[in-house]
Amino acid sequence: MHRDLQLRFLRTMLRIRRVEERCIAFAETGEIRAHYHLYIGQEAAGTGASAALAPDDYVFTTHRNHGHVIAKGGDPGKVLAEIIGRSGGYLGGRGGTFHVAAPELGIPHTSAIVGGSLPIAAGVAFAVRRRKGQRATLAFFGDGTMEEGVFYETLNLAQLWRLPLVFFMENNSVSAAERAGRGSPTSEHAAKALSDVPRAFGVETATVDGTDVEAVFALVRRLLERVRSGEGPFFVESRTTRWPGNYGAFPKLVGGTTDIAWALDAASAPDGVRAWTMESDPVIAYAAKLLWHGAIDAAALRAIDAEVRGEVDRAARFALESPLPQAEALAGVG
């Protein structure tokens, strides 16, 4: 894989990690007003999938959207401003953390209802197909969506109408040992392997280690070529392992912010996060891989991290300095 692309992957994943860490700080200071959801631990999936998309392809996401918007090219300042409900956010603060969308990036609307975006994504794909367009649609959603009826309705309809759509299911509840195996355990689903379900509808499925950015990129790029030639829809199960801070609706920064030096020695990560860092952290794993293959050295890695931190510091400042929206922003949108 080309080194420029590898460095792009690393920067994007780090950018997501640093933005998400900033969200926890914003929650502690009360800038985030209610519960919220983070993408820590899934950075490789969003980054790899989005890198395979064309700039004008459509993306749909969920309540766990921050990373997807950044991966599609979202400005961290506008993302953070939206997350804390400021006028400089992508939606002027009307959507907030649950609904970050960026119409100009092909993310027209983000539903925070589990499964809410799925039929809308199918509708966009339907419109593209009717107009014989080439734009693909990729819908990110979590394994919990497969507990909703709308998933089955949408899957059936998408397959009946052969829509140019990738169902990108992020199963973030898989143990490190199970990521490469056949099982995809989730405590609330009767199906033993979630990707068996779409196959019953005749939908081709693929399973990928969602902590491996290059594997996700290669898979999605291949599927998008087939989608554009009319072979869709497809279903991907991306398997990741839950970050220890990510239980419940109020994430905790277990082990503190990620120290890029853990890429040199993952065992140096603090107690609460050590095992996860060693086995399941996509950012640290990728940095370590690039070090191992000599794509970068430790100094270059520190420089990239410092650069991204600076960028996210500026983004956070932009968000905090952005004014609260005024009541006039409510007018004229009925």
Binding site: P119, G123, V124, A127, G149
Partner: peptide, 20 residues
């Protein structure tokens, strides 16, 4: 559409977002 009111109403919303 199939007998899937929830999905096809959502499909209509998406199709409208995409210019139909």
């Amino acid at each position: 559409p199939p007998i899937s009111e929830l999905a096809y109403c959502g499909v209509a919303v998406g199709a409208a977002l995409a210019g139909l």
